[in-house]
Design a protein around this nucleic acid. Structure first.
Length: 187
DNA sequence: CCAACGATGGTCT
DNA sequence: GACCATCGTTGGC
């Protein structure tokens, strides 16, 4: 079942944790979210929105429950879920999924048969799911990209976010403890 | 196993 | 012109 607006309106850190164990669904592809990172509008120099709105980060300043997809390193896309209040500029980065459905197509797109290597990183999962700029700034409530509920209550661990040159000291990375599809082991 | 490095192009100053 | 919320390959052990 698709999650509603209320789910996305919770505080960003709560949302980052609540997303763990839920399902990202796109057409016939499905993956369980096992790793996320929170990006905050206050005291977070690692956040794209930290220096105010620009054309790229505009979706982050919109309402919660929409996507913010950006292109990085000339090759990859990263999928975020906009969170927080409209005008603030917060989001949750989806960092890793456990493949559940549509694995054959993911293998074709990722050019590997290895299940662990299909969605265990932010650039990998967008490649496996075919997520590009076309999926930027769209609603997760009724679009082709959705988050579905689950009854799982995973054991959550946290650590430092990955790949940042600012704000590394903040422990805003969350993942399901012991899950083998998490992109990197705990720090 | 692992650290180092290059690919590659959009975005912002 | 510098930077970048990455990844696959390479070459060392």
């Amino acid at each position: 079942m698709t999650l509603g607006q209320k789910f996305y309106n919770q505080p960003t850190i709560d949302l980052a944790k609540a997303l763990l164990g839920k399902y990202l669904v796109c057409d016939d592809l499905k993956g369980k979210i096992v790793e996320t990172e929170a990006y905050l509008y206050r005291d977070d120099p690692g956040c794209h929105a930290s220096r105010g709105p620009t054309p790229r980060n505009a979706p982050m300043f919109g309402p919660a429950g929409r996507t913010y997809v950006y292109f990085i390193y000339g090759m990859y896309h990263c999928l975020n879920i906009v969170s927080g209040k409209t005008g603030e500029g917060e989001a949750v980065l989806i960092r890793a999924l456990e493949p559940v459905q549509g694995i054959t197509l993911m293998q074709k797109r990722r050019k590997t048969m290895k299940i662990e290597n299909l969605c265990n990183g932010p650039g990998k999962l967008t490649q496996a799911f075919g997520i590009t700029r076309k999926h930027n700034n769209i609603s997760l409530l009724d679009g082709k990209l959705q988050i579905h509920n689950s009854r799982e209550k995973p054991e959550i661990a946290s650590g430092r976010r990955i790949g940042l040159s600012a704000g590394q000291e903040l422990e805003l990375r969350f993942f399901i403890k012991g899950n083998r599809f998490v992109s990197k082991t705990p720090v």
